[in-house]
């Protein structure tokens, strides 16, 4: 039904808008000194996580892509590549988790999402500088992933009922 399609597109656009706003908000936050340079809180990933669980694969990837385009406009080409790589990797991972596995709670999902996102970024960095020197960043990113993953996972758990309600409203 055409109506349904429009509703789905609108909802996806809504999720994208939220992701973009969160991305902008994140860029305004001052960097805490103990966070490794380059890592982000991952707030803009929360709508993507919801999408991975409740929307189609296509819609999820679309949100990731749109979010990355926003990053491209505001922070340049390199940031765009990192956001895209990290976003796609973590989105795919979460789709897999939500659909195929059972044992993880929101914290675990958040941590895995952060891990994948950071891994995607490291890979892009590797292609850009082409030296294994980047390996040095890995341990610190691992630890940071735990912290940010827990944060985003918890936040997702908190907003889950609201997002779900929103989705119900379209029926």
């Amino acid at each position: 039904m055409r109506n349904e399609k429009i509703k789905r597109i609108t909802f996806t656009a809504l999720m994208t808008a939220i992701a973009v706003v969160l991305s902008f908000v994140e860029s305004l936050l001052p960097t805490a000194y103990f966070m490794p340079p380059g890592s982000k809180l991952g707030l803009s990933n929360i709508p993507v996580m919801f999408s991975a669980s409740k929307l189609t694969v296509g819609e999820t990837l679309l949100i990731v892509f749109a979010k990355s385009v926003f990053v491209f406009i505001t922070r340049g080409f390199t940031a765009f590549c990192m956001s895209l790589a990290g976003g796609i990797l973590s989105a795919l991972c979460m789709i897999f988790i939500f659909r195929k596995t059972n044992g993880f709670g929101y914290m675990g999902i958040g941590i895995l999402s952060a891990l994948c996102h950071n891994a995607g970024q490291l890979i892009v960095s590797f292609f850009l500088v082409q030296t294994t020197a980047i390996v040095g960043y890995a341990p610190v990113l691992l630890i940071a992933s735990v912290g940010t993953g827990f944060l985003t996972g918890t936040l997702l758990r908190l907003v889950m009922p609201y997002y779900t309600k929103l989705k119900e409203m379209e029926k």
Partner: peptide, 22 residues
């Protein structure tokens, strides 16, 4: 889903450990 499950805690410790060792 639950917020924290056993699997989550295992994941947390494994990742933290790997990071600290690194």
């Amino acid at each position: 889903k639950k917020l924290i499950t056993k699997k989550d805690l295992i994941l947390l410790f494994v990742v933290l450990l790997a990071g600290i060792v690194g």
